[in-house]
């Protein structure tokens, strides 16, 4: 039987100044601890994927970032300043697309722009109009009649029209069909590339992250369990299986498993015993991993990797 290692998760340290920093942030609602020492850095120009299951604390972290609620402990800084020092100034540099589009249903996109522009000194009406055109949003139709996808595109248009330095997207594609979702993600990618703005993209959908993110953080139970690029994460985790009738308790796919970083998961699945292991990057690069007889390598999607990481936490 292999014991689970105490080794820390993979972390990719960077030295430049982050646009957004959360350090050991804690937040509780009554007895419920939602964030338990969450730490992450987001650097200029990157598309940062904030990945986690429902209830992992993603939306709470974003509400803290927006200054809507206050942290119990830890530090939060945006653009090098603490939120308390200049909440309004910081928010003016942020474009925010919320999970639920709570825009006024009686407004039209045109009226909405009249309302919102007063809050942003850098509001670019021409860009807003252009985005409405690009997204094929009727400027004089009531927002209450828009579909979920149209509302999300409108919210993105609003967020981008303020020429933000940081774009925060909180599960913006929730409730969209796959086509609309893909369309939306392409637009985000395209627009942020054009602007060079930093993007903080929160989601629980792995394919969205794969499509868009340069770097990700996985949050589970209010803690960061992975902070780094996607490929190293994907490459660090491998899975093997053997028919259950050939499995001997405590058996492993080969001797190379002794170099593992962690045993993420093991158990029976569809008549086979499956073992998922995480290795340090150096080991993955140097070691040839030929499994013992009966064991075969199981192909892993990013989703499998995510589940393995989260389940282990």
């Amino acid at each position: 039987m292999i014991e689970i290692s105490d080794s820390p998760v993979l972390v990719q340290p960077r030295t430049d100044n982050p646009v957004l920093r959360m350090h050991e942030v804690q937040k509780s609602f009554g007895n419920l601890k939602v964030l338990d020492g969450l730490s992450l850095d987001v650097f200029p120009g990157e598309v940062f994927g904030f990945l986690g299951r429902n209830g992992a604390g993603k939306s709470t972290a974003i509400r803290l970032l927006m200054g809507i609620t206050q942290a119990d402990a830890g530090q939060i800084s945006l653009f090098g300043s603490s939120l308390k020092s200049d909440l309004i100034g910081i928010r003016q540099k942020i474009g925010y697309v919320a999970q639920d589009q709570n825009m006024y249903p009686w407004m039209t996109p045109k009226v909405l722009s009249k309302f919102v522009r007063g809050f942003y000194p850098s509001w670019d009406e021409a860009r807003y109009q252009q985005l409405l055109g690009d997204f094929q949003l009727p400027p004089k139709r009531r927002i209450g009649t828009f579909s979920g996808g149209m509302k999300a595109k409108l919210a993105l248009s609003l967020a981008l029209a303020s020429r933000p330095q940081l774009l925060i997207l909180d599960e913006p594609t929730a409730g969209m069909d796959p086509v609309a979702r893909r369309e939306f993600l392409d637009l985000v990618r395209e627009q942020t590339m054009n602007d060079g703005a930093t993007t903080f993209f929160s989601t629980h959908l792995i394919d969205e992250i794969e499509a868009i993110a340069d770097r990700i953080a996985i949050v589970e139970s209010g803690k960061t369990v992975y902070d780094g690029a996607l490929d190293p994460l994907r490459n660090s985790i491998k899975s093997w299986s053997i028919p259950i009738n050939q499995y001997v308790a405590g058996d492993m796919p080969g001797d190379f498993v002794n170099h593992r970083l962690k045993l993420l998961k093991q158990g029976e699945r569809q008549g086979r015993w499956v073992v998922t292991l995480q290795f340090p990057e150096s080991v993955m690069a140097s070691l040839s991993m030929h499994p013992s007889e009966g064991w075969i390598n199981e192909p892993m999607t990013l989703e499998d990797v995510f589940i393995a990481i989260v389940a282990n936490t």
Binding site: I88, Y96, N102
Partner: peptide
Amino acid sequence: LSGTRLFVEALPLG
């Protein structure tokens, strides 16, 4: 009740 308060809450204002 309509939740539009949440939209205003995220705007840059006190």
